[in-house]
Computed example of a mutant assay.
Amino acid sequence: MANYHSVIEKNVSLMIVLTLVAVSFGGLAEIVPLFWQKATTEPMATLRPYTALEMAGRDVYIREGCHVCHTQMVRPLRAETERFGPYSVAGEDVWEHPFLWGSKRTGPDLDRVGLRPITEQWHREHLRDPRQVVPESNMPAYPWLAENTVDWSHMERTLKVFKNQFGVPYTDEDIAEQMQKVNGEWADATEEDAVVAYLLSLGQARREER
């Protein structure tokens, strides 16, 4: 056995190949069973689909790169749960495409931001000039969001894709109702309105769970 170890340890290429094989088997053993566990494949009972306004806000949030600095994944550590709330579970994000979990926190985690005692007006002021409400913030300002109206041209198709391709439980009636709002009360909504609606929706499944 010592001779085998000696051969492997002296052959870098062989060491790399065997390491990759070992890691691959270990990864498969941990990951594959998750595909059959309800906790990772089924939504929480309290989870609801995004409204068209929230969906538009999520699109703007991704477009502006907000997810690069803000994670949406509370880890199961005491320091995390005391600050941000209950740790994240897969059932909260089964309808997220793309999902916005991550590991980089230039800014605070936002997975539970909708549960915090933060008003809609605070979010608006924070987006327009972060340092007015958080003096030490290094977040850039997004004043143009209050000036740009939402582009609704692809929203009906987006909702149908999430329904048909990703399994989000929108009914035809739900989509028709959302499009009525798009063409009515939300017709002149700004991108700021949409982003704030999206932020306020984050974590609401956990509020309903309580």
Score class of each variant (00 low, 15 high):
Ala2Ser: 12
His5Arg: 11
Ser6Ala: 03
Ser13Leu: 15
Ser13Met: 07
Ser13Trp: 10
Met15Cys: 10
Leu20Cys: 15
Leu20Arg: 07
Val21Phe: 09
Ala22Ser: 12
Ala29Lys: 04
Ala29Leu: 07
Glu30Gly: 04
Ile31Phe: 15
Pro33Leu: 00
Leu34Ser: 14
Trp36Pro: 01
Gln37Pro: 03
Gln37Asn: 12
Lys38Ser: 13
Lys38Phe: 02
Thr41Leu: 04
Pro43Val: 00
Pro43Leu: 01
Pro43Ala: 00
Met44Trp: 12
Ala45Asp: 07
Ala45Ser: 14
Pro49Ser: 10
Pro49Met: 04
Tyr50Ile: 02
Tyr50Phe: 12
Glu54Tyr: 01
Glu54Phe: 00
Gly57Asp: 06
Gly57His: 02
Arg58Val: 03
Val60Gly: 03
Arg63Gly: 12
Arg63Glu: 14
Cys66Asp: 11
His70Tyr: 03
Thr71Met: 08
Gln72Glu: 14
Pro76Met: 14
Thr81Trp: 00
Thr81Asn: 09
Thr81Arg: 05
Arg83Cys: 04
Arg83Trp: 12
Arg83Met: 11
Phe84Ser: 01
Gly85Trp: 04
Pro86Gly: 01
Pro86Met: 01
Pro86Ala: 08
Gly91Lys: 00
Gly91Leu: 00
Val94His: 04
Trp95Thr: 05
Glu96Asp: 13
His97Lys: 14
His97Gly: 05
Pro98Val: 01
Leu100Pro: 09
Gly102Trp: 06
Ser103His: 10
Ser103Glu: 13
Lys104Asn: 08
Lys104His: 08
Arg105Gln: 14
Thr106Ser: 12
Gly107Asp: 13
Pro108Gly: 09
Leu110Tyr: 07
Arg112Thr: 08
Val113Asp: 06
Pro117Phe: 02
Ile118Glu: 03
Thr119His: 13
Gln121Pro: 05
His123Gly: 08
Arg128Glu: 13
Arg128Ile: 07
Pro130Ala: 14
Arg131Glu: 12
Val134Gln: 12
Ser137Ile: 05
Ala141Phe: 09
Ala141Gly: 09
Pro143Tyr: 02
Pro143Leu: 12
Trp144Asn: 05
Asn148His: 15
Asp151Glu: 03
Met155Trp: 08
Glu156Asn: 03
Leu159Tyr: 09
Lys160Arg: 15
Val161Gly: 10
Phe162Trp: 11
Lys163Gly: 05
Asn164His: 11
Gln165Arg: 15
Phe166Ala: 06
Gly167Arg: 11
Gly167His: 07
Val168Lys: 05
Val168Tyr: 05
Pro169Lys: 06
Asp172Cys: 00
Glu173Ile: 01
Ile175Arg: 14
Ala176Gly: 11
Glu177Ala: 09
Glu177Pro: 06
Gln178Trp: 07
Gln178Ser: 01
Met179Val: 03
Lys181Gln: 11
Val182Pro: 06
Val182Thr: 09
Gly184Trp: 13
Asp188Ala: 14
Asp193Arg: 03
Ala194Pro: 13
Ala194Asp: 07
Val196Asn: 09
Ala197Glu: 03
Tyr198Thr: 07
Leu200Pro: 02
Leu200Thr: 01
Gly203Phe: 09
Gln204Asp: 08
Gln204Trp: 02
Ala205Cys: 13
Arg210Tyr: 10
